[in-house]
Design a protein around this nucleic acid. Sequence first.
DNA 1: GTTTGTATTAACCAAATGGTTAAACTAAAT
DNA 2: ATTTAGTTTAACCATTTGGTTAATACAAAC
Lengths: 204, 204
Amino acid sequence: MDKTGSDQTTEDKILEAAKNVFVAKGMSGARMQDIANEAGINKALLHYYFRSKEKLFEVIFKAAVSRLVPRITAILESDLPLFTKIERFCENYIDTVMQSPFIPLFVINEMNKQPEEFILKIWGDQKPGLQIFFKQVEEAVATRLIRPIHPHQLLTHIVSLNIFPFVAKPIIFFVTGMNTQEYKEFMIARKKEIPEFIINSIKI
Amino acid sequence: MDKTGSDQTTEDKILEAAKNVFVAKGMSGARMQDIANEAGINKALLHYYFRSKEKLFEVIFKAAVSRLVPRITAILESDLPLFTKIERFCENYIDTVMQSPFIPLFVINEMNKQPEEFILKIWGDQKPGLQIFFKQVEEAVATRLIRPIHPHQLLTHIVSLNIFPFVAKPIIFFVTGMNTQEYKEFMIARKKEIPEFIINSIKI
DNA sequence: GTTTGTATTAACCAAATGGTTAAACTAAAT
DNA sequence: ATTTAGTTTAACCATTTGGTTAATACAAAC
């Protein structure tokens, strides 16, 4: 099967190419011929391996989401102290996304396109177990460990600070004049910058 | 021209419909027939009024961007004290976007699709005048008004906290159980929450 | 009522699109 | 060498797509 010296299967080639094209054009805008071109294969193979555009998309979507969501919610659901939780969340999130930087934009788009379907696909009919985190924040406020802040606002701050810089990459490059290596270091630095920023803000 | 009792021109109907479809499907994925359907008009009118899909898209893109970028950079370029600047930026930004909540996602997508073209279209060959803000942050650090923080990191924090919650609307709804009115109040509250959060973090 | 300019429509067009089909290719097993 | 199973290809198909065209409708001016 492998006769060109490359060790990538046709299936893997398709998945990689499809990911790039779906990210660039969205599901509707992506062309099967473009995916085939990018993968360096004949278009009929897309159907041979994945049956339809929709199914191909589904595979990539599932892979993206399953890489992100479980470990993120696991941290927030754990018994760790609040500040440790924030630190772990940030470190974990940024590490995860740096390995697949397309995920935030991809997930954001899908989430906004069909919100109900998106949520159903990821969580079914359950709710993410964030009550533990919310209660923890409320307790920390009540015991004056942290300033008064609504748990929803705090979670939004945390997630915003972690996600947005990935989708803002082009503008960060432009505004700061960073190159690729500098951007990478910038994002790695954020693993500590963000929790420090947050904890400094809420700590009494 | 107006014979149905509605005071919207055909052109306005097209623009509104196109905005919705472009936001939902992206430029590639948007279908002219879908836009015509949403506007309740004959497809040929799209070409009569706007010549081509690309030109139609351009009009909407320009309108979106011109509503956001100038006032945001103007605040950062001004002579206001640093903390006032942060407060003004957040208040202004959230007010602006709440009037056209589709803008962040729209702009984020365009920015990531073709970064160079995006930047060229908005700024031409100039640079946004953010040096004033960056120097201000450095001075504030030097004079121990604020904790040491890199200006690039601070700007990224500020913009992240303001933009992301708009594109995260579906997940915020889901995770918090908010309804539309509650979400609106939540976002209005952020006009004060965000600068407070930031200033508490950096202030010595 | 007629003319003029603008707006709207339905039909049409060539190209693009997702998907299908059958033949050809490849490699392993016999 | 032949058979088998899996992979790949080029051609094909019906439908969709952005855009065009000519006729019709509409409203204002004369």
